[in-house]
Write a protein that binds this DNA or RNA. Structure first.
Length: 110
DNA sequence: GTTATGACTTCAC
DNA sequence: CGTGAAGCCATAA
C-alpha cells in the first residue's frame, strides 16, 4: 500500500528502541542514537521523532542531547522550559556553569 | 513542483 | 574554545 504515513514510522520505532535502551544516568547524542538506530546522518529525524513522540510513549527523550554536551529543548516550546535539565540532574548528571555537562563522561557507550 | 524551517552534525578558521 | 558555513533529511506552507 502506498504509505501516506511519514517515513519515520519504521525509523521512529528504531529510534524509540534505542532511546529506551539508554541507561539511567547516561546520555546519547542525536547522531549517536540515529547511528544506533541504523539511520546515519539522520539526527534531524531523531529530533522530529522525539518532538512528535506519543504522549503514551515512555521514552527517556531527555537523555538525548546534542553533540556539544549541552541540553537542547527548543526555547520555542516555553512551558517545558528547563524540564530536561532537571530530569538529567535527577539522574545524577552534574551540569557545569553554562548548562553543559561532561559529555565524554556521561556519553552512553553501547 | 519549490521554499523555508528545525530539540542536529561536522569541518574550517 | 567560539563562530561560521555547508551538509542532511523530513515536515509545513
Amino acid at each position: 500500500m502506498t504509505t501516506t504515513l511519514p517515513e519515520g514510522a519504521e525509523a521512529g520505532a528504531a529510534i524509540c528502541g534505542v532511546v529506551c535502551r539508554i541507561p539511567k544516568g547516561w546520555v546519547a547524542t542525536y547522531g549517536q542514537v540515529a547511528a544506533m538506530a541504523g539511520l546515519p546522518r539522520r539526527a534531524r529525524l531523531v529530533v522530529y521523532v522525539l518532538q512528535h513522540l506519543d504522549p503514551a510513549s515512555v521514552v527517556p527523550w531527555h537523555r538525548v542531547v546534542n553533540a556539544k554536551g549541552e541540553v537542547s529543548y527548543t526555547p520555542s516550546r516555553n512551558g517545558s522550559d528547563g524540564v530536561q535539565r532537571r530530569l538529567l540532574e535527577d539522574e545524577g548528571i552534574v551540569f557545569d556553569g553554562r548548562g553543559r555537562f561532561a559529555l565524554e563522561r556521561y556519553r552512553w557507550l553501547d
